[in-house]
Every structure is written in structure tokens, then in C-alpha cells.
Design a binder for these strands. Structure first.
Length: 596
RNA sequence: GGUCCUGUAGCUCAACUGGAUAGAGCAACUGCCUUCUAAGCAGUAGGUUAAAGGUUCGAGUCCUUUCAGGAUCACCA
């Protein structure tokens, strides 16, 4: 039983014994005592006054006295208004620490025996990744790590949008303007090469529109009649018909793009267990339309188009198959949902997709539930807000995007110059230094994007946004490096900081007790982050822990401490903080250095 | 217009899911390196939680309305 559970059980008994009121410990809750008051945990009395039939102060005194008498972990209490503040004795904190310290699998909750899929990244193959994709990728990767820590077996999936009109646009432009250019001949990364032609297409297309409008066409007409768009549409038809020349170009250009993506993913530190390609899945789902018709979940209109009626669920009617029998986006998504289930027998499925598709997923999930899919209740759209620039929204076609590769390199460069400025790389080989810069630059970037609640949109100012001080990745990395340095010294001078080294310790300081409390909260934060699919909970926790540690570090001596047990304990405490920081940062996909 | 999301210090974000005097970081100002890494620590200042009502012992949190920003509502993907 944890300390909190012990206290709650005693409170439950106190209600029964002194007030003749039955309330189970599970229905009671403690909160951490605010800093300005004495105590570790606080019990709020207000909700129970109707049972105690006493003033809050008196009720608190009664319960407090009972705890002092009957609960061995409680050492003192005080009552302020309706709040019962409870102090826990030092030995109990020490045993909490020892238990944490002996746990080899820090931050790993017991296996749940369930599989969950996290789909993220899901890029289009007509252009390189940008800042928005970074938020998506970091979120998805982190959520997968968090779910794994919660005991799920996790499958990370990438559903690549490798077909469609947008890819044809890049291909058409390449045919016109490419002159046989390749990544090798141009020195461009494959995805950037494809993106170049996507932009070229848009520019040429716009010229055609302008020309047609000068001849008297309306904008709408011009957009439909421009030769380039007709060409792209024709190419899409040929692709679907399996035209050899088109398919060959498509394969070539996509292979360039994949090569480019692989390099980006590697740099970003993300990876996948399963790739799905829309060119394989875009025809799926038609059988589900049939099934839905039979089950009367869908209905047919006069022109043969098939619809889902979701008006009962507060949504509209939604088209699931065109009158000519061809698919729409959601047809394919229904099919893919089944495919994922067949492939992995997953009980949960998380889609990391931007909030512009909230409605789409609302509809999709409601349909799958109406179709009685066994995984229906486990479908979850992890919707995240867009990343805006000071200049407004990013638009790939117009080239007003922050490119992912560029941004990462910029971060690493900034980390390098900052580190050199601080003169912190004495004794580093060039390779070690480069590794450190990468760790810090990526750490800063990932932390910046993950510390915010996913559903909030965020502003990214390239000049100002990423800091290395305060609530940042490097601050936490720094805290870890600091502790590593202490551990190196402890090992060097032979401090025994195993549990035996501080056995029988009699007293701990407030700063130490608070650190133990913070360490003790890690698992709860992991399960909370898992339930809410929110890495920001972990980020916030790590910052608080690092901050708490740095306070301890400044206040209390370690190696100049005369008492051997106290010294061993402080090293052990430091070591446990380092392990926790490292494990927590791993959940964010961020590495921590031994030195910086 | 319908639906959904967001609104907290100058800026970026918290607030343990309804609890105490709303907390951190950045920016500003003051201190602290001869001692374990100053990418740190301590402190000062900064607030009508967009606005107004309501619910109750108690509201940033729940309800209603209004305002502001964003997204979405195609036989597009």
C-alpha cells in the first residue's frame, strides 16, 4: 500500500469510528499540500461536513487526532479552515525512496496484454516535411512511447499518401520542366526535389489561370480549364489504369522521396513498425459499404450514391460512395480501419492527425461503431492544433513553410554556437561534440513542441521561440548532466550509494523529502499521460522535477557533507532523479547527455 | 449560418479534473561562482482568468448568453 492509500484508509476508518459514517477509501482523495503550509498531503473537509455535523476546524482536529493515533505514517497535522494538512514521518519517506530506488524498471508499468496502434506522420509524397509534420511526428512517437510505458504493446504505423492528384501535379511539372534532373544530378534531397516541382506546377498553373481570365474566362472556369490541371487529371486516370510510363515515373519519383524521408526520420529519431501505402489501400472499403447497406447503417439515394445517416448522432448525412461507384476518402478509411485490426488484432487505435479533420474522424468513428466493429470503442483521434508562423499560416504550394530539415539543422547549429560560447566542450572529441549539439538542438525543438497541450494551436517564431534556458529541453538535459558528474565523482572516490550505504539514516531535509515526493509521482503521471494521450503532462513533470532537484543541489552539500550516510543518501537521491529524468525524456523521444 | 476547438501576467505555457492568497519560464530589475557544471539558485515586479449572468460552502475549471480567434460543414483529398 502506498502512503496515500494508507492515509486514506485511516481517514475512512476515522469517519466510521468517530462519525459513524461509512465511506470507502476509494472515494476519498488527497492533494499535495501547497508550499506555504506545513505538511505533505491535504485532505479537504468541506464535502464531508454534512456527515461530521461539526465546524470544519473541529472536524479536521478530530480526524487529524485519529490519524496521529492510528496511522503509522502520519507524524503531525494542522488544520487551516477546511483543510487538514497531514505530515508524513521521515522514515516513511525513506522507505518510499528505497522502494523506488530498488525498482529496475523505472517508468515501466505492468503489461496490460493489449495491443494499440498509433498512426502518425502520414506524409504526402509530393513535398518535403515541414514544421507542422514535426509536431505530428514528435507527438505520435512520444504517445507511442507513453503507451508502451503504460504496458501496452504498441505498433507505430505510417500511412503514406503516395497517390492522388497532388502527386500527379509534381509529376506533370517534372515532365515539363525536369530535364531529367535527379537527386544525384542536382544534389537535392529527393523529397525536396519533388517539392520543387510541386511549387513549379503551382506557379505555371497560376499563369495559365491568369491568361485564361485575361481572355474573359471566370476564375472558376479558368481553374478547371487550365491545360496543366487537365493534364494532371489525365495522369491520375492513367495511373489508375496502370499506364506503364506513368507508373514508372511515379515509382521513380516516390523512391526519391522515400529516400529523403528516411533521412529526415532518422535525424528526427522517429521510426515505424508498419508502413501502409494508400496506393494499396485506396480501393478498400467498398465491401464495407455493401455490409452497411445490408445492416441498414447506410442507405442509397436515387442516383445510386450511398450515404450514412448520422442525424441521430447529431451529425449530418455523409457520402460514403459516389454514384458512379468510386470511393471517397472515408470509404478507404473504413477499409483501412478493418485492415489494421486484421493485421494486428488491436484493441485501441490512435490517429495522430491535425484538428482540421475533427469532423472527418467523428464521422468515421461513429460509422465504425454503428457497424459493430469490436475495436469501435478503442478508436481515438489525437487531434492537435496547427503550428502558425508570425506571418500566418504555412502554405506548401506557396513555399511559405518552415522546412523540417532546415529547422532541425538550424537548431543544431544554434546549440553548437551556444555551447561553444559557454565554453563547455573541453575534452570533447569532435564526434562527441557533434553528438551533443544534435542532442541539444533536437531536445530543445522536441520539448518546445511537446510541452504544450496538443489540442492548442501554437505560434512558432523562428527567431524567438526556441530557448535553451528555463522551461526547455536543454534545462532538463543540463540537470541530468549535472547529476552524471556527481555520480562520476562518487564512483571515483568510492561512495557506496547502494541502499546499504544509507541504511539507518535518521533524518532527511525538507528539500529531500520534496524530491522523494516528486519522484514518487512519476508513475501516476505516466498513467495520466497515457489516458489523456498527452506528452505535455510528462514534459511539465520533468521540468518540475529538474527544478526541484536544482533547488536541492543549491541548498545542500553532497561531498563536503561529513556524515557518510547522509552523503550516500544524497548521491542515491541524485542518481534516482537522473534515472527518472532519463526515463521521462525517453518518453518524449529526447536523449540526455552525461556531460554538457 | 450550423457544429467543434481555443481565449489565464507584455510574451510562451501550468493549475493534480470543483478546493486555500491562480503558479512557472522568457523579457525587466536585485543578489549568489576560490567549494559537487551559473544552460543553475534565491528574490522584486507583473492578474477584474475575454465579458456578463447562473449553479454552491467554494468556480480559471460546470451551465447560459455575448465577444474575439481558428477549424470544419463538397459525388475534394
Amino acid at each position: 500500500m502506498t502512503i496515500q492509500e494508507q492515509i486514506l484508509h485511516s481517514i475512512s476508518k476515522a469517519f466510521a469510528d468517530t462519525f459513524d459514517h461509512q465511506v470507502s477509501a476509494e472515494d476519498l482523495a488527497l492533494q499535495p499540500t501547497r508550499k506555504e503550509f506545513e505538511g505533505s498531503y491535504t485532505f479537504v473537509l468541506f464535502p464531508f461536513l454534512k456527515f461530521t455535523r461539526m465546524k470544519p476546524e473541529e472536524s479536521g482536529e478530530k480526524i487529524g487526532a485519529y490519524l496521529l493515533e492510528n496511522c503509522e505514517v502520519v507524524s503531525a497535522f494542522n488544520v487551516v479552515k477546511g483543510f487538514l494538512n497531514i505530515s508524513v514521518n521521515e522514515q516513511s519517506w525513506l522507505s518510499v525512496f528505497e522502494k523506488l530506488y530498488k525498482n529496475e524498471n523505472i517508468g515501466q508499468l505492468p503489461a496490460k496484454g493489449e495491443k494499440v496502434m498509433v498512426e502518425f506522420s502520414s506524409p504526402n509524397t509530393n513535398k518535403p516535411l515541414h514544421l507542422g509534420h514535426l509536431r505530428n511526428n514528435f507527438l505520435g512517437f512520444s504517445v507511442a512511447e507513453i503507451l508502451a510505458a503504460n504496458g501496452y504493446e504498441v505498433v507505430k504505423a505510417n500511412l503514406v499518401n503516395d497517390r492522388g492528384i497532388h502527386i500527379c501535379k509534381s509529376m506533370v511539372a517534372y515532365q515539363h520542366f525536369g530535364n531529367g534532373e535527379t537527386p544525384e544530378s542536382s544534389g537535392l534531397k529527393g523529397d525536396h526535389l519533388a517539392g520543387k516541382y510541386y511549387v513549379l506546377f503551382d506557379q505555371a498553373y497560376k499563369k495559365e489561370i491568369a491568361a485564361l481570365m485575361a481572355e474573359g474566362a471566370t476564375e472558376e472556369e479558368a481553374k478547371k480549364q487550365a491545360p496543366l490541371i487537365l493534364e494532371a487529371q489525365e495522369m491520375l486516370r492513367k495511373w489508375e489504369a496502370g499506364d506503364e510510363e506513368v507508373v514508372s515515373l511515379w515509382k521513380t519519383m516516390n523512391s526519391w522521396v522515400y529516400e529523403g524521408f528516411d533521412r529526415s526520420y532518422e535525424k528526427m529519431g522517429v521510426s515505424f513498425d508498419q508502413y501502409y501505402y494508400e496506393s494499396d489501400t485506396y480501393l478498400l472499403g467498398k465491401d464495407i459499404v455493401e455490409e452497411g447497406l445490408e445492416k441498414k447503417v447506410f442507405f442509397k439515394k436515387d442516383n445510386n450514391s450511398v450515404w450514412a445517416d448520422l442525424t441521430q448522432e447529431g451529425l449530418d448525412e455523409k457520402l460514403v460512395l459516389r454514384g458512379d461507384g468510386t470511393s471517397v476518402y472515408i470509404t478507404q478509411d473504413m477499409g483501412t480501419a478493418d485492415l489494421k485490426y486484421q493485421d494486428f488484432n488491436i484493441s485501441k487505435s490512435v490517429y495522430v492527425v491535425g484538428n482540421e479533420q475533427d469532423y472527418h474522424f467523428d464521422v468515421l468513428f461513429k460509422i465504425m461503431k454503428k457497424l459493430d466493429r469490436p475495436y469501435g470503442d478503442g478508436l481515438y483521434h489525437l487531434s492537435y492544433g496547427m503550428v502558425d508562423l508570425p506571418t500566418g499560416k504555412m502554405k506548401s504550394r506557396e513555399g511559405t513553410v518552415v522546412d523540417a530539415d532546415d529547422l532541425i539543422q538550424e537548431m543544431i547549429d544554434t546549440a553548437a554556437s551556444h555551447t561553444k560560447e559557454l565554453g563547455k566542450i573541453e575534452g570533447f572529441s569532435q564526434e562527441q561534440a557533434d553528438q551533443l549539439y544534435e542532442m541539444l538542438g533536437l531536445g530543445a525543438l522536441k520539448y518546445f513542441l511537446l510541452k504544450v497541450d496538443p489540442k492548442k494551436r501554437m505560434l512558432f517564431n523562428p527567431q524567438e521561440s526556441i530557448e535553451f534556458q528555463g522551461n526547455t529541453g536543454p534545462f532538463i538535459q543540463y540537470s541530468h548532466a549535472r547529476i552524471s558528474s556527481i555520480l562520476r565523482k562518487a564512483n571515483q572516490i568510492g561512495v557506496d550509494y547502494s541502499p546499504a550505504g544509507f541504511e539507518g539514516l535518521e533524518h532527511i531535509e525538507t528539500a529531500e523529502q520534496e524530491l522523494i515526493m516528486a519522484l514518487n509521482g512519476f508513475e501516476k503521471k505516466i498513467s495520466q499521460a497515457g489516458e489523456e494521450l498527452s506528452p505535455s503532462i510528462i514534459a511539465q513533470y520533468l521540468f518540475d522535477l529538474a527544478k526541484e532537484y536544482n533547488r536541492f543541489y543549491a541548498e545542500l552539500p553532497i561531498f563536503s557533507e561529513g556524515n557518510e550516510k547522509v552523503r550516500a543518501f544524497r548521491v542515491a537521491l541524485s542518481s534516482q532523479v537522473a534515472r527518472t529524468l532519463k526515463a521521462g525524456m525517453k518518453l518524449l523521444g529526447i536523449k540526455v547527455p552525461e556531460k554538457m
